[in-house]
Design a binder for these strands. Structure first.
Lengths: 340, 340
DNA sequence: TTGTATGCGTTATCAA
DNA sequence: TTGATAACGCATACAA
């Protein structure tokens, strides 16, 4: 059924060893034999077996990318970059979705797939320490997105606190007096939410404003729908806010939609700032002010870091220092926050 | 380094064969040995080698998903469904991006990865006949998204022509007199564009309207940016259209943005209808009327069809009839097309 | 420059 | 119910 190197060897009248040499481009093959073998390969339609190669080499040429939901634009944009970068380095990418379930996260890190892949790029919602426990001598993991790998694992991300502070400051500087925060999370261990809230809090405090708990809205997740619901809640209050900082762009887009439904204008009645730098926000009406992390860079550095660690592991360099790379972000001011 | 079944066997005091039996849940193992082996597995942290299993079984447990761009929401939403469905069936998914390059499409179908995967779900931009040529006895492919696999390959999709006709009719029924089409493609072999244009044309013709070539805008790709540019071109005309049917939601969202920039109101000044049923369009301002294919169903049926064909291939049933499944779609009317 | 032989970790055939 | 053993397809140490 499947064509093997042995078949090619027979056809070309050489040994299987020679076919392997040709396939892998080893220099020690005469041009003549190369010619014959190449011909035979084409005639028989031979394709190397990745399974056999993996088994033999102990390297699969596959990286694993684990994200909560692929249809959340932030992760989609990230995935695009990761896959692109990996392919540039000769690696294929297996994508797994955890759908927010810790069980799936565990499985992605401990199951056979995790062993088959040479390494994993992980955007986790669960607790890192917990996830990393009992992963003795497994393939390396690079954590992406949250601010810290807790020294346990390489981490690539932006300074969420600083970014959130910048976003909140921008609202303050735009003249907002009552700035709400949308996207606090009931489970405070959800680091992303906690960090961005912290940034918000710091900015307010620095401006001499005390946080009004009524202006901090928790959301179970970070979709447009959650943002819409949160905004509706905020707008139903007597003393509604005049500015809203949302923990993600999706929340912000939902929030703007809610304002529209209530007949309020953004930014005149209420300014909105998001976080993620989604392409979508460049075209929303009004265009969304946001914190834009350099996602391509995050993707590239993540892949590079992972590959570096994979190679280090091969050499046996056990104790390479854990990396924690801060990627640049920028505050992109668009229509949703430009007042008067 | 890596823990093998042999290691587990030694630890548990049984033969390696028995470990394999336990791992695979074969019935012919005494509860006692199961207990001992399971214990040993846990103690040693054994994980089965997928590479070895693949080599032995000739099945990798991996499907390949090939899409143009993962950060285009339509493909992201599709990918989510495909990965979910595949995981439900015990398969992992490798995702490849072609970025619109035919070379990458070829490679995805003919390279080693295509051989490693048990099958491929392909959303292609290139010519199908060309892509399928010379894929003699390779793993099966299911085509997704366009209307036809040309009888060469299984296909799952919606009736693009009928859907486009429905969308155009809706604009006509909403009172639009001059309906433009955005998203025609210079390369007419791009079937998706051709089909949706055909539906547009049919609807106009049925209404006794001749197509005004000036109202048909070509776009190189189908991103928001292209929709924005196309709309700006349309609006710069003296006799601008009062309705626009866009070949994708992304084009439509860009078009609405352009109208906004020009100070025109959607739908009052110009109605807009998209195609894809993106989540984004439910929250855009105004909310976008669109053709909504049942993407979850597309994903599910694609995976099922692919698995069915994989199994058929194992049995050796060579000539199973090629499937062409039409998935349901619906016209979802939202604010962008509701006039007066 | 090329050939022979071995083993990667599994599953599965044949015996016991 | 379990043990030896072969084979999956490849890359490489060792020979020639």
């Amino acid at each position: 059924m499947t064509v093997t190197q042995a078949d090619v060897a027979e056809r070309a009248g050489v040994s299987q060893r020679t076919v392997s040499n040709v396939v892998n481009g080893l220099p020690s093959v005469s041009p003549d034999t190369i010619e014959r073998v190449t011909m035979a390969i084409r005639e028989l339609g031979y394709t190397p077996s990745l399974a056999a190669r993996s088994l033999r080499l102990g390297r699969s040429g596959v990286l694993q990318l684990v994200v909560p939901e692929l249809d959340v634009p932030y992760f989609a944009e990230l995935a695009r970059g990761v896959i692109k970068s990996a392919e540039d380095q000769g690696y294929a990418v297996m994508v797994r979705q955890t759908l927010g379930s810790r069980e799936r996260e565990r499985d992605a890190l401990e199951g056979s797939a995790a062993e088959y892949a040479e390494g994993t790029i992980l955007s986790a919602v669960g607790d890192i320490g917990e996830l990393m426990a009992g992963r003795a001598h497994r393939a390396p993991v690079v954590l992406i997105g949250e601010r810290t790998g807790m020294g346990l694992v390489d981490h690539i991300g932006i300074d969420d606190v600083a970014a959130a502070t910048a976003a909140t400051n921008h609202l303050l500087e735009s003249g907002c007096r009552r700035v709400a925060f949308v996207g606090a999370h009931p489970d405070s261990s959800l680091r992303m939410a906690a960090l961005r809230y912290t940034g918000y809090e710091l900015a307010l405090r620095a401006a001499g404003i005390t946080v009004d708990p009524d202006l901090v809205i928790q959301t179970g997740s970070y979709h447009r729908q959650d943002g819409e619901a949160a905004m509706l809640a905020l707008l139903s209050r007597d003393d509604r806010p005049d500015g809203v900082f949302c923990a993600t762009d999706l929340l912000a887009l939902g929030a703007m939609r809610a304002a529209y439904e209530r007949g309020l204008r953004v930014p005149d009645d209420i300014a909105v700032v998001g976080f993620d730098g989604l392409e979508e926000g460049r075209y929303s009406i009004p265009a969304l002010t946001t914190i834009e992390p350099d996602k391509q860079q995050i993707a590239r550095v993540s892949v590079e870091t992972l590959l570096a660690r994979i190679r280090a592991g091969e050499i046996g360099a056990e104790s390479v220092e854990v990396r924690d790379v801060a990627i640049q972000f920028s505050l992109v001011v668009r229509e949703s926050s430009i007042r008067n």
